[in-house]
Structure formats: structure tokens, C-alpha cells
Nucleic acid binder design. Structure first.
Length: 927
RNA sequence: GGGUGAAUAGCUCAGCUGGGAGAGCGUCGCCCUUACAAGGCGAAUGUCGGGGGUUCGAACCCCUCUUCACCCACCA
């Protein structure tokens, strides 16, 4: 084995071997356990969120596989309608073309080409992460089977009147020329203006104050071209008399009524609101209440259409806005302009301002679907982890609006609806089926709906469509419902909620029993990783490493805002002067686990991954040591248990303690605690103590072969068990080392992947040996402390005297002298029966025991007095605190007796230690 | 406007049902001790955001304030 851990060398070949051997496929025996992957965008590439999400799923999958479950990780990709179409449109744009130049069929062909070209990218990257996915079952939301499921669901929902077509106001994206759902609109506060316009009263009417106009305030002046009323509050004294009168709408010369509606807040603005039912969601409702005409004044590009006066026709909405303000000003109708902050709705994909727009769209009536979906979480059929996300889910589900599912795109599932000339709607599996289903004449001309379905419509069916639905397959019966959905909170509404609704509807069962919601990966300062911030870390770069020039190039290429490039380059060069070293998959994964606590933000800190790379190196070298010890003389499991030393028993006990912690933490999805427990055990107990304690035995000529064998066996056994313990989290290094370790234990198998997870064995937990080893560690640490504080060279062997202890201390010394000598680097250790004869020495107290390092030539008295003073200060503070607490009668009366007893013991221990220290100080001061 | 989460060592974060403040990284000192310098040994470091309350006892429970982040919502 190399002296240093080289992740690349280890990781390059294992995955192919695993996959080729079919280890990722369900075993066919055992309790079924399944997870459906949140399907990534087929043309996407892996980001930190994917890395995190998949690391967690793989840990669960590998863990359950080792536990003997019949384990399926169902994989697939999403066609991601808008996102993918946009990429291809941008490519066309670079050639000066639009999709319309190609036409629908050719364009879709182009998208399929792009999918073929880049589609394997993300799945290759998932493999790099070590994801033990059954690739033979890979699906795509637009493959034949899944498309059939989509069609089936659409038709059945339509036939049940749950899907319907409606003409109403939708969120219209003027760049993408499609409707989008409420969820795809993001509102950000932006600086804008409040324009105050005078609207003249018609027919010579006057206001209460005798004015010939009223004043309205608007943030979107261009919409006045579509005004069909002005509304006031019914009780507003200022305007009450005007209700029912009319206004001459400026620039349009239309007469529109003044209406009364409770919606108007008299306190806000002027108390008069212009009503544009075709371009504002509130106004739309008011328009419906008052039966107002709805004048659409915008084209699909959000330019002014010819329902508006000719002067504005064809102008872009924002140019029209300026023109209208100017014209109002010229007419003396602009009262004033105020700065105003307002929420501007933008499309989450296109980034342009969304327009409420009157169109025909398809909707899902969600009410009947939502009820059982709410109940499933209320009654515990589905549990969110952490539980508080259930509140988020409920809040949204209980106030759910109908879901607009049609998109005016070309890439996606075409809506299985046909129209005749009269506008009748026919829904079915293709034109022939429709004719048959509705008994239509063969010569009736039918046109299929041009629109496609929202991507999330097909994702909502994911857990069952991937298993073969609508057919009744073995896979469905075996692996559905899936066990857990692992995802971030940002798609609870988009995906989780809709999956629950659709699955309950079509399967009559939940899609998954648990939803593990994890946080979003951010940079170490808590900033969202984004191209424009230049703080994106690519998981593959962390695995393979990347040099500075490439990293800079990567971060500054293809920028939406090229002007930021210089700043990002500077920042990158400062943060990564040496580029990023190769940390390997195992270290990256372990970092993810260590960060997977319950919070909603996960700040990725480079220091952590470096630390876990070092942990890999530690494991590597511990294994090297073990192999050095056992290669020549292969150990056998001792038949006589008494061959084991106390220390051997101790490490078995600690392993069991760790295993229990790990199992408990996995059960509640606390992978940070898993990572911590294993790290602590392996580094701080197995390496720092057990490996060191094995040396005195193995290098001791007096030790029997049986004892040496027991220690060798324990070294190897604990290593091998630790590898299995770790495997779900660090698949590569554990496999690599296990391949060498297993044969030495007589295990003949091809892979660690299919080995059983370590067995819990309460009988190995041994508190008696814990006490003895803790004593041993205490004494060693005491000597090391003196050595460190007194600046005694680590190379120098020193004599140590033990005194004042009890029978137990003597016995422990007897059992452990050889360990003590080796680990504390002692020249000698001996028991001093009469403490009075102790030479001047540096002293540490362990329980009652005094550990003495004689001064002679080693220790400077002044330095020792300084050290003792420091210890004394600490103790005095502790004693004061404890004495105060115990002096409080109420504490003694009210606190549980065991707590009080514990405090008493602490106090008396501290006091006796203090006395010992004080004696020592007195003694040294007399020198 | 409603809601949620967060605030603990210089940095990134743990801290389970209230009972002696922890880890990693960083810092300081000593060491190339035959698994590992990506290492070993030792050390230092915190009015647990502020204030109030409950309690014998609060990082933890309650109230309140501050700061930050996020989600939802139709104020023109």
C-alpha cells in the first residue's frame, strides 16, 4: 500500500466493477426497501445540491442493502420542459434563429439531439459520486412508458372533471410566450414609481370638493388603456356621491363607470383605484363581481395591441408606459410622481416581468386531490423529517389554488385533447381513440391541442410511473410505496405535494412513507452558490481537483453578466491561490454527511472537506499498520476468551457503543451524528489509543503467542468491522481496504457492498474494562501533560512514581505497567509505599493517585510552581462554584438526590486534589 | 401583512427529555517516536445575540427586543 492515501487510484475502478457485477440491482430477497431519485434535468450537470442529496440516498441504500433488504434505487431523469427548451433556443439564437424558423417537429428533433449529446453527463457524474443505482432501470419522463402514464392520468382526470379547460387570467411570460404556474413566479421588491393621474369626470360632474376630476394612483400606467372602471370604497364620504357616475378615460376617450367595492382601501393612495380586469388579478375579481368588460390590451410579447388607441399600438409595454406618462403630462393630467417600492413578479426561468393575461388554459381542480393528501400527513401515513416541515406543507395545501398545467411550449408531453371546428373538446389516447370514444364521424376535422404539460405534471407520477404503471407490475407490488423521499425544502410545493396528491389518487396509497427534507448547500458565508456571484463549487472539482487557471476560466465563462468576470477572477485567485486539490469522493461525501444536521442552510466550508480527506488518510494508514502486524502471522479468532487483554475488550466495547450510536442516528436521518460518531471512534479511540496500546503487546517478548494472537485478531477484526460500519458513507476506501482485510480473516467474498452490516452485540459492551482503560489513559495523559508543560523532550525516557492511590490503583498499575511505559515513554514506573519519601517532583493527580515525575535534572522548580498555580486556580474556581451550589439549602432540598450526591463527590474530589497540590507547592517552595 | 428558521470559540457547526460548554479547521509550544507531518503530544480560547421571567438550577422552557435568512400573501 502507498504511504499516502491517493483517492484517484482507489476510486477509478471500483464503480465499474460494482456496476458490471450487478451489485446495484435488487437482491430479490429480504424486506423491500426503495427510494426514487428526484430526477435531475436530463441535460443538466451535477451541482452541490445533487451531490448532497445523492450522497444521502446512497448511504441509505447501501446501509439497507447491507442490512439484507431487497433494495432498489430507482433512477431517471426529467425532461425539464422550460429549462431544456430554453437551452436549445439559446443555441439556435447564437445562429440567429428562433424555434419558429425550424418549426415544431424539427425543433423537437433538435432537443432530442441535445438530450442525446448532453444527456449522459449528469448520470456519469452521479456514478462518480459512487451512487449505487440500478442503472438497468433508468427512466426518462418522456420515454414511452412514462408518457403513457401521463396520458392515462390526464384522460382519467379529465373524464372525472378534475382536469378542465378555462379562460381566465394567468401568469404570462412574455419572453417564453407561455403561461406559468403561481409557483414559477417569484416576486422581488424593486424600486418603482407611483404615478398620480387625473381622471376627468364625464358629463360635467364635480367631486364633493368641486373638482372636475378624481385622482388615481398606479404603478403600471400602461394598463390604463384597458381600464373599464374606477372603484372607490362604498363608505368613502369623499366619493360616495360619484358612485354610478362616469369618467372619461383619458387617452382612450371611453366612458367608464365609478363603482363601489369593499376591496378598495380608502386609506391607501387616493382611495380611488383604476380597474383593469384583463391585466390585474384583483381587478379581474372586481371585474367579475361587477360584470365589467375585460379589455385585453397586450400581445403575447406584452406589446400594446390594437384594442388600444392607435398611438400606442405596437409599443412595448415599458415604452408605452413612458409615452403614456408623457401624454398625460402634456394633457395636464399628471398630478405627481412618487418613488415607490413594489413587488415585481418575474418568471423564475426567464427573469422578465410577468403579465396577468387572459387566455385559455388547462387546470387541475385540486380540492378533491388535496383533501386525502392532507389527511395522509395528518394521520402519519407520511411523515416529514424534520417534522416541522409538515406545517409548511399544511399551510400551502390548505389554501391551494387550481393548478395551471398547460404550457405553450414545444418540449414536453403534448396534451391529449382534440378540437373540432365548433370548439368541442375531445380527450383520449390519440386521434383514433378519440373518434371511437366520442363516436365522431370519420370526416370530422380534428386538431390536437398545441400545448404541452407542465414538467411537474409528469414528475408528480414519478414513484409509480417508473415502476411500470398503469400496468400492474411486480415492481409496483414489491417496491411501492417507496420508503423515503430525500429532497430539499425548495420543492415541497412543486413536487412533494403533487406527488402525494397524484399517487393517492391513482394508486390509493402514499408515494413514500417518509420525506427527509434536507437543507440547501450554500457557500461558507451562507451565500447561495450562483454563477453571477462566482462562488460556485463543482462537486467533481472537489473530487478530482482543479488548477487555478481552469477554475478561473470555468467561473468566468458563459456569464450572463460578463462585467462581473474581473471581480470573480480576483476573488477566486485570492480564495484558491493553489487551485483545489483532489479530495476524492469519499471525503466529499463524508463532508456532506457531517453537515447534514437539521438546519435549512448548509454552509460548505473547505476546511471541513480537507479534514475528512485527512480522515481518509488516517484510515488508510491505520490499515497499513494493521496489515504490517498481521501479514506474517495471520491471526485466528481466539478460542479462549481470556487471551484477550483488557484493552482488547475495551476496543470491542467502544466499537459496539459506536455502532449503536450510528444505528440510532441513521434511524432519524442524523447523518452528521453518524459522521461524528464514526470519526470519533476510529480516530480518537481506535487509532490514538488502541493501535498504540497494541504495540507494547506485539513488541513484548514476554507476551504469550496467544495474547499476541488475540491482539492481532482484535486489530484486524475491529478494522474490518469499522470498514463495514463506514461503507455506506465512504464506499471506495472501505472497499479497497476490505479487499485486503477480509481474506486475512478468512472471509471469501467479492465485495464489501454485499456484506452484512456489523451486528449489535450488547454483550460486548463492557463498563468494567472501560473504567480500567480510562484509568490507564488518565495516568498516561497526566505524564504527557507534565512532559508538555515542562518542556521535557519527547525523545527522553523519564522515571515515574505513583503514590497515595488505593488498592485498585495498585492493581491497575500491575495490569498495565507495560502500556504505561510505552505510551508515556517512561524509563521506569514504580509504586511508592510511603508518600513521605517522595523526592521533589512534578505532580499530577488522577483520582486519589499522585503521579510524580522526579525533578532531578528534568524539571525547573519555578516552572513547576507556575504550572501548579495554574491548576490550583482552576480547582479553586471549581470548588467555589460547587460549594456555593451545595451551600444553597434549596438546591439540596429540591434537586434529585443523585444530582446532589454527584455534586458532593465532585466537591470532595476537588478539595482533596487541591490539598494534594497545595502540599506539593509547600514542598517545592522549601527547596 | 402572516409564517418559519437561525444567532454557541477567530471560522464552519454539534449540543437528545433543563443538572459540570463540545468537534473540525485555525492559533500557540514541543516533536521527522519504525501506520500516518494529510501526522503525534501538550496548551489557550466562549457574560451560549440583549433584557426579563419560571426553576434549587437555563445554551436548552416562557415573554420581549435586536440582527440575519427564508417562505407565503392581491394593497392599487
Amino acid at each position: 500500500m502507498d504511504k499516502t492515501y491517493q483517492p484517484f487510484e482507489i476510486e477509478k475502478s471500483w464503480y465499474e466493477k460494482w456496476e458490471a457485477s450487478g451489485y446495484f440491482k435488487p437482491s430479490g430477497t429480504g424486506t423491500p426497501y426503495s427510494i426514487a431519485i428526484p430526477p435531475p434535468n436530463v441535460t443538466g450537470s451535477l451541482h452541490m445540491g445533487h451531490g448532497f442529496n445523492n450522497a444521502i440516498m446512497d448511504a441509505l441504500i447501501r446501509y439497507h442493502r447491507m442490512k439484507g433488504c431487497n433494495t432498489l434505487w430507482q433512477v431517471g431523469t426529467d425532461h425539464a420542459g422550460i429549462a431544456t427548451q430554453m437551452v436549445v433556443e439559446r443555441q439556435l439564437g447564437a445562429q440567429g434563429k428562433t424555434r419558429h424558423d425550424l418549426g415544431r417537429e424539427q425543433f423537437i428533433e433538435k432537443v432530442w439531439e441535445w438530450k442525446a449529446e448532453s444527456g449522459g453527463n449528469i448520470t456519469r457524474q452521479l456514478r462518480r459520486l459512487g451512487s449505487s443505482i440500478d442503472w438497468s432501470r433508468e427512466r426518462f419522463t418522456m420515454d414511452e412508458g412514462l408518457s403513457r402514464a401521463v396520458e392515462e392520468v390526464f384522460i382519467r382526470l379529465y373524464d372525472e372533471d378534475i382536469i378542465y379547460r378555462g379562460n381566465r387570467l394567468v401568469n404570462w411570460d412574455p419572453k417564453l410566450h407561455t403561461a406559468i404556474s403561481d409557483l414559477e413566479v417569484v416576486s422581488e421588491e424593486e424600486n418603482g414609481s407611483f404615478w398620480y393621474f387625473r381622471y376627468p369626470l364625464a358629463n360635467g360632474e364635480k367631486t364633493a370638493e368641486g373638482k372636475d376630476h378624481i385622482v388615481i394612483a398606479t404603478t403600471r400606467p400602461e394598463t390604463m388603456l384597458g381600464d373599464t372602471a374606477v372603484a372607490v370604497h362604498p363608505d368613502d364620504e369623499r366619493y360616495k356621491a360619484l358612485i354610478g357616475k362616469t369618467i372619461m378615460l383619458p387617452l382612450c376617450d371611453r366612458e367608464i363607470p365609478v363603482i363601489a367595492d369593499e376591496y378598495v382601501d380608502p386609506e391607501f393612495g387616493t382611495g380611488c383605484v383604476k380597474i383593469t380586469p384583463a391585466h390585474d388579478f384583483n381587478d379581474y375579481e372586481i371585474g367579475k363581481r361587477h360584470d365589467l368588460p375585460m379589455i385585453n390590451i397586450l400581445t403575447v410579447d406584452a406589446a400594446i395591441n390594437n384594442n388600444a388607441p392607435k398611438a400606442y399600438t405596437g409599443l412595448d409595454r415599458f415604452i408605452a408606459r413612458k409615452q403614456i406618462v408623457l401624454d398625460m403630462q402634456k394633457s395636464g393630467l399628471l398630478e405627481k410622481i412618487e418613488d415607490h417600492k413594489l413587488k415585481v413578479p418575474r418568471g423564475d426561468r426567464s427573469g422578465v416581468v410577468i403579465e396577468p393575461y387572459l387566455t385559455n388554459q388547462w387546470y387541475v381542480a385540486v380540492e378533491s386531490l388535496a383533501k386525502p393528501a392532507i389527511a395522509a400527513v395528518e394521520n402519519g401515513d407520511i411523515e416529514f423529517v424534520p417534522k416541522n416541515w409538515e406545517n409548511t406543507y399544511f399551510a400551502w395545501m390548505r389554501d391551494l389554488q387550481d393548478w395551471c398545467i398547460s404550457r405553450q411550449l414545444w418540449w414536453g408531453h403534448r396534451i391529449p385533447a382534440w378540437y373540432d371546428d365548433a370548439g368541442n373538446i375531445y380527450v383520449g389516447r390519440g386521434e383514433e381513440h378519440v373518434r371511437d370514444k366520442y363516436s365522431l364521424a370519420a370526416d370530422l376535422l380534428l386538431m390536437q391541442d398545441e400545448d404541452v404539460l407542465d414538467t411537474w405534471f409528469s414528475s408528480a407520477l414519478w414513484t409509480f410511473s417508473t415502476l411500470g404503471w398503469p400496468d400492474d407490475t411486480d415492481e409496483l407490488r414489491t417496491f411501492h410505496p417507496t420508503d423515503v423521499l430525500v429532497t430539499a425544502f425548495d420543492i415541497i410545493f412543486f413536487w412533494v405535494a403533487r406527488m402525494i396528491m397524484m399517487t393517492l389518487k391513482f394508486r390509493g396509497e402514499v408515494p413514500f412513507r417518509k420525506v427527509y427534507i434536507h437543507g440547501l448547500i450554500r457557500d461558507s458565508e451562507g451565500q447561495k452558490m450562483s454563477k453571477s456571484k462566482g462562488n460556485v463549487l463543482d462537486p467533481i472539482d472537489l473530487i478530482d481537483g482543479i488548477d487555478l487557471e481552469k477554475l478561473v476560466a470555468q467561473r468566468t465563462s458563459n456569464m450572463m453578466q460578463p462585467e462581473l468576470a474581473a471581480k470573480i477572477e480576483k476573488k477566486t485567485r485570492k480564495e484558491f491561490p493553489e487551485g483545489i486539490p483532489a479530495f476524492g469522493t469519499d471525503a466529499l461525501r463524508y463532508t456532506f454527511y457531517s453537515l447534514a444536521s437539521t438546519g435549512r442552510d448548509i454552509n460548505f466550508d473547505m476546511g471541513r472537506i480537507e479534514g475528512y480527506r485527512n480522515f481518509c488518510n488516517k484510515i488508510w494508514n491505520a490499515a497499513r499498520y494493521v496489515f504490517m502486524q498481521v501479514e506474517e502471522q495471520k491471526p485466528r479468532a481466539p478460542t479462549d476468551k481470556t487471551d484477550y487483554s483488557q484493552v482488547d475488550l475495551w476496543i470491542h466495547s467502544r466499537f459496539q457503543d459506536t455502532l449503536k450510536k450510528v444505528e440510532d442516528a441513521v434511524a432519524v436521518y442524523r447523518f452528521d451524528l453518524v459522521a461524528q460518531a464514526i470519526y470519533d471512534f476510529f480516530w480518537n479511540e481506535y487509532c490514538d489509543w488502541y493501535l498504540e496500546l497494541s504495540k507494547p503487546v506485539l513488541w513484548d517478548d514476554n507476551a504469550t503467542n496467544a495474547q499476541k494472537n488475540a491482539t492481532r485478531h482484535t486489530l484486524l477484526d475491529i478494522l474490518e468491522q469499522s470498514l463495514r460500519l463506514l461503507h455506506p458513507f465512504m464506499p471506495y476506501i472501505t472497499e479497497e481496504i476490505w479487499q485486503k482485510a477480509a481474506p486475512l480473516l478468512g472471509i471469501k467474498d467479492d465485495t464489501i457492498m454485499l456484506q452484512p452490516y456489523p451486528q449489535q452485540d450488547a454483550g460486548s459492551i463492557n463498563t468494567v474494562v472501560d473504567i480500567e482503560v480510562e484509568w490507564l489513559k488518565g495516568v498516561i495523559i497526566a505524564v504527557r501533560n507534565i512532559r508538555g508543560e515542562m518542556n521535557i523532550s519527547p525523545a527522553r525516557d523519564i522515571p515515574v512514581l505513583l503514590t497515595k492511590g488505593g488498592e485498585r490503583d495498585r492493581q491497575f498499575l500491575g495490569n498495565n505497567a507495560q502500556f504505561l511505559v510505552k505510551l508515556a515513554k517512561l524509563e521506569s514506573v514504580s509504586w511508592l509505599d510511603d508518600p513521605g519519601t517522595a523526592p521533589p517532583a512534578s505532580m499530577q493527580v488522577v483520582g486519589e493517585l499522585e503521579v510524580l515525575v522526579p525533578l532531578a535534572g528534568l524539571i525547573d522548580v519555578a516552572a513547576e510552581l507556575g504550572r501548579l498555580a495554574k491548576e490550583r486556580d482552576k480547582l479553586e474556581k471549581e470548588i467555589a462554584r460547587l460549594a456555593g451550589k451545595l451551600g444553597n439549602a434549596k438546591f439540596v432540598e429540591n434537586a434529585p438526590t443523585d444530582v446532589v450526591a454527584k455534586e458532593r463527590e465532585k466537591l470532595s474530589n476537588a478539595e482533596s486534589t487541591l490539598n494534594q497540590l497545595q502540599d506539593q507547592v509547600d514542598k517545592l517552595e522549601q527547596l
